[in-house]
Nucleic acid binder design. Structure first.
Length: 155
DNA sequence: GCCAACGTTGGC
DNA sequence: GCCAACGTTGGC
């Protein structure tokens, strides 16, 4: 068993909020719609069942961490890439060679909102990738120390 | 709605 | 392989 890893995963609440995750069957959702190679590579190559996930709401009135989750599957193809009616359809992807992979994410627990301004104030979190200027990556690795500091602040 | 920052595309 | 143009992200 490899060492536990931690991630921050952004989701737009209008697309899939923490409440949507809580209401989902088995409180689990496939993390569909990622169309960025770096984020895909994290899911495909590095994520393991049991990894910790900070669930983050982006592009909304109150951006921030809103819950804790767990990676609950290894990587498999994102079905939406094959669906012509989907916003995430990719005509260059085939079933033989799918371009986009995803993992399942299962809710651990909802938390209070740990807001973006609050994250910025925390000295232990100063190096979080998500807080760096210009960062747009929807999935970023989180260090064990950052994970611990976030948990401490969530109480 | 604005805009900075970044990723992708495509012409050469 | 370069790089300009374009599209997207995401906070404000």
């Amino acid at each position: 068993m490899a060492k536990q890893q931690y991630w921050l995963m952004k989701s737009e609440p209008s697309e899939c909020s923490i409440d949507d995750l809580a209401a989902a069957k088995k409180q689990t959702v496939p993390w569909f719609g990622v169309r960025n190679y770096q984020a895909r590579n994290y899911m495909r190559d590095q994520m393991q069942v049991g990894d910790g996930v900070l669930f983050y709401h982006s592009s909304c009135p109150e951006p921030g961490i809103v819950g804790l989750a767990t990676v609950s599957s290894t990587a498999y193809p994102d079905e939406t890439q094959f669906d012509k009616k989907s916003h995430y359809y990719d005509e260059k992807s085939t079933r033989e060679e799918p371009r986009w992979m995803l993992v399942d994410v299962t809710l651990d627990r909802k938390t209070r909102l740990l807001s973006l301004p609050e994250l910025r104030e925390a000295p232990e979190l100063a190096d979080m990738i998500i807080l760096k200027k210009g960062n747009r990556l929807s999935i970023t690795p989180v260090t064990a120390a950052e994970w611990k500091a976030v948990l401490k602040r969530l109480g």
